[in-house]
Every structure is written in structure tokens, then in C-alpha cells.
Write a protein that binds this DNA or RNA. Structure first.
Lengths: 214, 214
DNA sequence: CGGGAGTGAATGAACGTTCACTCTGTATTG
DNA sequence: CAATACAGAGTGAACGTTCATTCACTCCCG
């Protein structure tokens, strides 16, 4: 009662202590198997190897879990981008990484399921929508940064000129991960075609290199 | 007891009587707002304007509802394709229809939410995955049929050569509908870019027209 | 001995599913 | 024509289950 005014909105990006990361890793498959609304707190606590009461000490609500999962995935993407931006040929490294993503080599099918779940939840619950929008915005910004590096344009100009390209690449990667799996011959053809689309987008950007125009 | 052996799997595509269509139209927004697992049978019955017990007479399970919703959407797509295939310039009509889709003019945001929900459920529950795969396969087949008409190729050849194109168009349309909404300037740029990708795919197919090569 | 980690039973609400029942219009029979 | 039978649409209380959330409590380490 006499305590000073509480901060109404606690920092939405709490530091994510290692214990919480462990828990998230443990409950991830449960969310993937049962969905965000299908998994009960009991399910999650059991998967985390602890009692229900204790589980609440780490995550006070479902939304908090979802936000934390998004945060973790964003962290992972960040480290991947650090490698790309730091590579001798950022554009080539980016191309390779994107191809691997499209070939589903960088994320499990459980991850894809989780992504589809998050996409659906984002359209339903505004608070999750905001977190997801922020994440996709940051990824697009990383892409634009790589574009700037590769073209020699300033980050602002690269963002203005190729921001939509970045957004489309994000969309393609997400869509190809969450899309219905196809039988071998068709699935492979689609994968190749998506890779070709991405290559086309990257080529278009690389062609912008001001000094090396033919 | 003395009755002849029952058919174990009733026809998965029951004719969908008009009353059931009414009910589906009524509960659609509830599913969109609360999700497939979030909406309770009580919620659905109330939205349909009837008692719980009666609701079960129409849909004995959640999965049955989802299948029926997919069936209805497929019907709608079918009638749209009938118009396209019957148009004097099928390829141009297809292009126009796809552009309108990308501009979100042919489906409400509730529809998009429902699609995201179905996509997520398909990855989680195999029976829904099968129904969705069948639907997307049929849509891709319709596209291939339009391609065949426009190029003069036989349906088989068109399917073999441009099946992946059809799949990619399906993927792009779905992804653009379920993707996070962007603020005005970026969103418009992305829309234009997606339309350009689709145009590129269609142009590539149209260039295959055997008699009119330059 | 103080505090953070962890427990799991308890509570009340909400859930899915069933079922005995009512109502209403239509056909059947005397 | 009137009485009756019947089928199908619709009801909502009732059942047992599961859920989210809380809390008094224990454990263990520094």
C-alpha cells in the first residue's frame, strides 16, 4: 500500500535467465504438439519437470511464454545474422543461409509448427501481434543492413529502396516453413522455385552496387 | 445387431446441407476470434443461436467443423476458378483475380485469421493436415488447368512443367493473407512486390505459348 | 536462520458430452 | 374430419473431467 507507484508495464523483454531458457526448450515440443490453447499449464509443468505451482513462478501467464519463445528465436536469428554480416562476402553468406532455411535444414518441423501457431495467435491476440511485428521488423532490418553492406548504400537508403525485398524474403521463409509438406517430386520443385525467387531478389539488390555497374 | 456391417468411414465430404452452411457462417467469427481450441462448444452453439445439445446434432466434433469450413472455402474457390477458366482471356482474368487477392479485397481479415488457424492446426493434427493438403492440391490443379488453357499445352504437360509455379502462387497468396499487417508505406510496397513476383511467374508461363514465340 | 526453489492438494469455474424431454408440423388411420 | 402416431428440430440440466490459479508448506544452501 505504501510502496511507490508500480511500473504498470514491466519491461516486456525481461533478460531471460538461463533457467527460463531451459524451461522453454523443454515445453516447446508440447506447444508444438498441442497448440498454444491446447496445452494446459499442467502439461507444461510436467514437461518442464516441475510442479504447477513452481512453474507459475517463472511464467505468470501463457502470453508471457509466447513472448519469451519469440524472444529466444529472435536471439537465435540475431546470432546468425552476426555471422552473415561479419562474413567476407555478406551477400553470398546470406544467400547460402537462406537456401539452407528453405531446404528446412535450419529448423525442425516442431519449430515450423510453433511458427504457424505464433502466426495464428498474432492475428487473434493483439499483444502477441505486436511482439511478432516487432520481431519481423527487426529481422527485416537485419536484412536491410546486409543489403546496405553489400551495395555500399547507406543503411537508410538501402532500407528505403529494398525494405520491401527484405519483407518479402521474411514472408517467403516463414511461408515455406509453415506450408503443407508436399510429396517428394513436387516438394523439391517448389523448394527450387522458392530459392530461385530469393536469388532473383538478391540479384536485383546486388545489381545496385554503384561502383561496379557494367 | 442384425443390421449389415456399417461403413466404418462415412464419406468425409458430406454434402453440406444449407442449414449447416448457415451454422458455419455464424460460428466463423467465433473461431477467428478465439481460435479452434479456444472456442468452446458453448460459444459455438450460442453463436449459432441454438442449444448445445442441438449443435451436436450437426457437428459431432471439432474436426468435423474444421473440415466443413475448408470444404466451403474450397467450393468458393471453385466457383471463382470457373469464372476464370470460362473467361475469354483466362490468363488475364487469373492475373486480375490474384492481384485482388493480394490486395486483400477478396477475403476479410476474419478469413485470414481462420486460414492461419487452419494452417497451424494442419501441422498439429494429421487428419486436418490431410484435408488441407487435398484442398491446396485441388487449387494448384485448377491453376495448372488455367495454365494449360493459356499455353495450349495438354493439362498433363502443364502440370508437370508448371506445377511448382502453381504451388508457389498458392503459397504466396496464403502467406500474404496471413502475414502480419504492416503500416501503410511498407505494406503497400510489399503488396506491389508480391504482385510483381506473381506477374513474373505468370509471364514465364505465358512465354511458353508454342505458336506465338517471337 | 533467512530466502529462494520447489511442492502438490485445494478451489471454483469452465469444459465436452449425454440424455430425457418438449415442441411442431406432417402423415396415417378410424 | 378428428384422433393418433411419428419424426425431427430443439432444449438445458446434469455428469464427470479438466482447467487455471492459489497457498500453506517443505527443502536446502549460504
Amino acid at each position: 500500500m505504501s510502496s511507490p507507484a508500480r511500473i504498470s508495464t514491466p519491461p516486456p523483454t525481461a533478460p531471460l535467465r538461463p533457467r527460463e531458457r531451459e524451461i522453454l526448450a523443454a515445453i516447446r515440443p508440447v506447444f508444438a504438439a498441442k497448440g498454444f490453447d491446447g496445452a494446459s499449464m499442467q502439461d507444461l509443468a510436467r514437461a518442464a519437470g516441475m510442479s504447477v505451482g513452481n512453474f507459475y513462478r517463472y511464467f505468470p501467464s501463457r502470453a508471457a511464454i509466447v513472448e519469451a519463445i519469440i524472444q529466444i528465436d529472435l536471439d537465435e536469428v540475431e546470432t546468425q545474422f552476426a555471422l552473415i554480416v561479419g562474413a567476407p562476402e555478406p551477400m553470398a553468406a546470406l544467400r547460402t543461409a537462406l537456401h539452407a532455411r528453405i531446404r528446412q535444414e535450419l529448423c525442425s518441423s516442431a519449430d515450423a509448427t510453433l511458427w504457424a501457431e505464433i502466426t495464428a495467435a498474432a492475428l487473434r491476440k493483439p499483444e502477441i501481434g505486436e511482439v511478432l511485428a516487432k520481431m519481423e521488423g527487426e529481422i527485416a532490418a537485419y536484412l536491410a543492413q546486409a543489403f546496405a553492406l553489400a551495395t555500399g548504400l547507406t543503411p537508410d537508403v538501402a532500407q528505403a529502396r529494398f525494405g520491401a525485398h527484405a519483407r518479402l524474403i521474411v514472408l517467403l521463409v516463414k511461408a515455406s516453413a509453415t506450408h503443407t509438406q508436399l510429396p517428394a517430386p513436387e516438394g523439391a520443385a517448389l523448394t527450387v522455385l522458392i530459392q530461385r525467387q530469393i536469388d532473383g531478389l538478391l540479384d536485383e539488390i546486388a545489381a545496385q552496387r554503384p561502383k561496379e555497374c557494367l
